[in-house]
Write a protein that binds this DNA or RNA. Structure first.
Lengths: 222, 222
DNA sequence: CGGCGGGTAGTACCGCGGTACTACGCGCCC
DNA sequence: GGGCGCGTAGTACCGCGGTACTACCCGCCG
C-alpha cells in the first residue's frame, strides 16, 4: 500500500486525484494540502510515501515545497505535476529533488505507473519532457571518451599546446603559466600564439570560451 | 502503423522482438540486423520509424551504429536496449542521439509504450535509469534562477554590469561591446572595471571563467 | 646525411585592456 | 534641497598580451 499526499490549490483537482488513487487497491490518499506551506507541514506529519505536488500555487509554490520536503529527509518522494511543460519548472523541480515530473494531461494509468515507480525509488519523466531533457543532458555531459569525432581544431593541437590551452582556461597569465610549467615567458607566448591561431581565436579570452565549449575547462561551481 | 528495424546479434532475441511487435496491430517489424554495420545499411534502405538497437554486438556496437543512423538524418528514431544498465552505455547512447534507453527486462507493454513514444518524437528512459540520470542532471545543471541562493558576487552586479559580463563571456572586446551597446569605449571600460572588482576577477579572462561557472555564459557546442 | 615537427627561447613592436581619477545627468528618497 | 546609486563619459598612464621574425636543440624518418 502506497500512501499519498495530494497537493493542489484547486479542490476539484484534489478530488479528482483522490477518486483516482482510492479507486485502486495499491494507493491510498492519506491527506491533502492546498498550498506549499501546508504541504510541508502535512508531509512531516503524515510521512506519505509519495507527495503528488502541483507546481503553480498561491503562496509557497510547489518547487520550494519540494525542496523543503526533500530536505527534511523523511523519505517522502515528490512527484511534481503541472499543466504546462515550462522548461524552467522541470529543471527547478529536479534540482529541488523531485523524483518525477508528469504533465496533468497524463492518462490515469500513466499517473498510477508514475506513483508506483516513484514509491519504489525509481524516477519518472513525462515522455514529452524526456526528449528535451535528454537533449539538454547530452549538451551538458562532457564530451570525450564516447567515440564522437573531436573538433579538428582541437585535434590539431600538440600535447603541449593542449596543456597551454587548459592553463589559459584556468585564467592564468602568461607569466603564471611560465612559472608553473617552468618555461620562459617567451616560450609561453610562442605556444599561446600557436594555440590561438590553430583554434581560430583572436585572443586568450576567446580561447577560454573555446576551452569551455570543448570540455577542456570545466565549471568548478560556486 | 509504426515500422521497426530490430538490431541484435542474437537470432533468438530478434525472434522474440518480432513476435511481440507483430502481435499488435500498431507496429510492424520491417527488417532485422545482426550487427552495427548491417543496422546502418538497413536503416538507410528501409527507413524505419524506429530502430530497436542492442548495445553489445560484435563489430560495430550499438552506440556507433546509433550515431551514424542519427547522423544520416533519415528521421529514424533509435531506441537503445541493453541487459545491463551500465552508466557509460546510457550516457554514450544519449550523446549518440538515441531517443530512448530501456532495459531488456522491461515488460512487453513497457517496450511497446516506449516504441509508441519514440515513434511520435518523444523520448523514454527506463525508470530505474531515470533516477540516476536525474541525479546526474541535477549535478550538471548550473545553479541560478531556480531559487537556490545566488552567488553574492553575482547579485551585487547591476543589470547593466550583468549585461557587460555576459558580453565579456561572449568574447567581445571593449570596442565591440561599445559598438553593440551603443556606448563609448570609456563607458564600457568603466563598467568592465566595476564588474572585475565586484566579482573579484583580475582581468576579463577570469571574468569569462566566472561567467561560465555561474551559468551566465553557456557552451554553444561544436 | 638532410629534412621536419615539436619544444624552447629571444628581441622588438604596438595596441588593447585595466586602473585611477574626475565629471555630469537622472531618478529616487529622506 | 541634498545625497545617493546608476549609467554615462573623458583623460592619462602603463603593462600585459599578441604578433612577427629568428634561432637552436632534439628525435624521427626517408
Amino acid at each position: 500500500m502506497t500512501t499519498v499526499l495530494v497537493v493542489d490549490d484547486q479542490p476539484l483537482q484534489r478530488y479528482g486525484f483522490r477518486m483516482l488513487l482510492d479507486s485502486v487497491p495499491e494507493t491510498e490518499v492519506v491527506g491533502e494540502a492546498a498550498h506549499g506551506a501546508e504541504a510541508v507541514r502535512k508531509a512531516a506529519e503524515l510521512r506519505p510515501d509519495v507527495v503528488l505536488m502541483d507546481v503553480r500555487m498561491p503562496g509557497m509554490d510547489g518547487i520550494e515545497a519540494t525542496r523543503r520536503i526533500v530536505a527534511a529527509g523523511d523519505r517522502s518522494r515528490v512527484l511534481v505535476l503541472t499543466t504546462f511543460d515550462i522548461d524552467e519548472y522541470v529543471y527547478a523541480a529536479l534540482r529541488a529533488g523531485a523524483s518525477g515530473f508528469l504533465l496533468k494531461d497524463a492518462r490515469p494509468e500513466e499517473l498510477l505507473a508514475g506513483i508506483r515507480a516513484v514509491a519504489v525509488g525509481d524516477a519518472v519523466i513525462a515522455p514529452a519532457l524526456t526528449r528535451r531533457l535528454l537533449h539538454e543532458f547530452a549538451r551538458l555531459v562532457p564530451p570525450g571518451g564516447d567515440g564522437s569525432a573531436e573538433d579538428p581544431r582541437l585535434s590539431s593541437l600538440t600535447d603541449r599546446e593542449r596543456e597551454i590551452l587548459v592553463a589559459i582556461g584556468k585564467g592564468w597569465s602568461n607569466g603564471e603559466i611560465a612559472g608553473r610549467f617552468v618555461l620562459s615567458e617567451s616560450t609561453v607566448k610562442t605556444h599561446v600564439g600557436r594555440v590561438l591561431s590553430k583554434i581560430g581565436a583572436r585572443d586568450r579570452v576567446q580561447a577560454v570560451i573555446f576551452a569551455y565549449d570543448h570540455g577542456l575547462a570545466r565549471p568548478h561551481g560556486g
